[in-house]
Write a protein that binds this DNA or RNA. Structure first.
Length: 494
DNA sequence: GCGGATCAC
DNA sequence: CATGGTGATCCGC
């Protein structure tokens, strides 16, 4: 008799049961096999790092210690200068709605509050976007395929996504945020980062924790949603703290240097934003489990890790967002915080998963669809593309990409397709049947605004791609069947 | 510049 | 039987 999942909390026995169900369901699937291959590549990477580590000398370490000492001094100087007009540290808050999509449905239809429920993933190949907290006790998580979730919990209710509803709810929540910081930033519908310093200056009777309690209470009163929050000296710490007492809780991280170091020192490395499953595994292989381990082993890590990662680790182990006190950017680099270079998207993409197929005609039709979608997005964003990347995924889940830089003025569906179709043909030719494919997409990057030099809306200079480029977005004269024949003639090894 | 990988949401 | 889509960044050629 299996353990009753209704009693599942965070207990070890229940967790083991959940893991066993997931393992039994996943075992043998193509997805699982691809995961194993990725795991093997990570193991190779760790082995190479260990071989490198074995060659590290005392003088390498001594040199690293010097470099680290200088970097640490620079970081501390920069952090101490990041204070408000009165010389006090800023009070940053990160606020995060709990199980946002699922909770919005619960507010509208309270019958979902007491039963396991998840949102998204109603299609055949669906994965869940959010699960309510009842469902989470069964081990159900976001990004879990629906069919595995049903093995964990057969009575699970799965609702369709309703973004219109989520946008309405998010807009209400944002009116609350704006009362506490009119300049708050949101990276997604369900979270926001606020600078509470001005608000607190106007309300000296409130502690930061009291103000945030009141903000979360206002969110609940005005939307029925619960939120969790973190309060700290910078946004990174606030974000980490917002996760600590979820759901419907908050945490204040000490603002003094030693308090910050104690907080990050006790933190498992996986909690730092930017350290995912793979980096966690790599660090684990070197006995680096916590922020304190990072700090203690910094000289050694410095000698074996790549520049971006080691600098990131140095910063976060001091409780400081990465990139702090870096040397000034080279002249000409467009790194204007708050300016439009910082907010401009660097790429736009469209991709789609479908029932695995080896049919070139189908893949061509799908690629046309993705190009049409991407063309619409480019036009709406008022940009042209300099680089196009074709992406395709095998039935085995292995992913391939091919990219090519263009003259910088590509946007219509037809232009996009003429650039990426050869990439599709080449990849398919390299992988002869019976290779089957399950996803295909196209990404535009190196975006150039319509009003950039030499560029005005409707008049594009220097466009010469294929034979038909009158600026018409609808030019799908080339028939799939004809392409298919052409490919067949060209296909095949010598 | 290109292709593979990693990460967040 | 069966595992998403979008955007960003980094690393090693």
């Amino acid at each position: 008799m299996l353990i009753n999942p209704l009693k599942a909390g965070t207990g070890g026995a229940d967790r083991a049961h959940i893991e066993a169900v997931i393992y039994e369901a996943s075992k043998g699937t193509r997805f699982f096999e691809e995961q194993k291959r990725r795991h093997a590549r990570t193991a190779d990477r760790i082995a190479r790092l260990k071989a490198h580590a074995a060659r590290v000398t005392r003088s390498d370490l001594a040199e690293a210690e010097q470099t680290i000492a200088h970097r640490r001094a620079a970081i501390e100087a920069a952090v101490l200068s990041d204070v408000d007009a009165d010389g006090r540290p800023r009070v940053m808050v990160h606020c995060d709605l709990d199980a946002f999509y699922a909770s919005v449905h619960e507010v509208d239809e309270p019958q979902w509050r007491t039963v396991p429920m998840a949102v998204g993933g109603t299609g055949g190949d669906g994965v869940l976007t959010t699960a309510n907290y009842v469902a989470r006790r069964f081990g159900i998580r976001s990004a879990m395929p629906t069919w595995i979730a049903r093995k964990l919990c057969p009575q699970l209710a799965v609702l369709d996504l309703d973004f219109a509803k989520y946008r309405v709810a998010a807009a209400k929540v944002r009116t609350v945020f704006s009362r506490y910081d009119p300049r708050f930033r949101s990276a997604s519908l369900d979270e926001a980062s606020l600078d509470l310093t001005p608000y607190l200056a106007e309300h000296p009777e409130l502690t930061p924790a009291q103000a945030v309690e009141a903000m979360r209470a206002a969110i609940h009163a005005e939307t029925g949603l619960t939120a969790s929050a973190g309060i700290a000296a910078n946004t990174m710490l606030a974000k980490i703290a917002s996760d600590a007492n979820k759901p419907n809780g908050q945490l204040l991280v000490p603002f003094d240097r030693l308090g910050i170091l104690a907080f990050v020192g006790a933190l498992p490395v996986r909690k730092f934003p930017g350290i995912g499953a793979v980096t966690d595994h790599v660090l684990d292989a070197f006995g680096v489990l916590t922020g304190a381990d990072i700090a203690a082993q910094m000289p050694f890590l410095w000698t074996i890790l790549t520049p971006a990662l080691r600098d990131y680790l140095l910063c976060v182990s001091m409780g400081v967002p990465s990139g702090a006190a870096l040397p000034p950017a080279p002249p000409g680099a467009s790194s204007t915080p708050g300016g439009d270079a910082a907010t401009r998207r660097s790429g736009i993409s469209s991709e789609r998963t479908f029932k695995s197929t080896a049919s070139l005609a189908f893949l061509q039709a799908m690629l046309r669809d993705q190009c049409a979608t991407l063309a619409d997005d480019l036009r709406r964003s008022r940009v042209f593309a300099r680089t196009l990347t074709f992406k395709i995924k095998k039935e085995s889940f292995a992913v391939l990409t091919r990219s090519r830089s263009t003259n910088g003025y590509v946007r219509t569906a037809g232009e996009l397709y003429r650039h990426v179709e050869p990439m599709l043909l080449a990849v398919v030719r390299e992988h002869r049947p019976p290779t089957q494919w399950r996803l295909l997409g196209v990404r535009a990057s190196g975006l150039v605004g319509e009003n950039a030099d030499g560029m005005t809306a409707g008049v594009r200079v220097g466009v010469r791609v294929g034979g038909n480029d009158g600026g018409n977005d609808r030019d799908d004269a080339t028939r799939d069947g004809r392409r298919s024949d052409a490919v067949r003639r060209r296909g095949g090894h010598p």
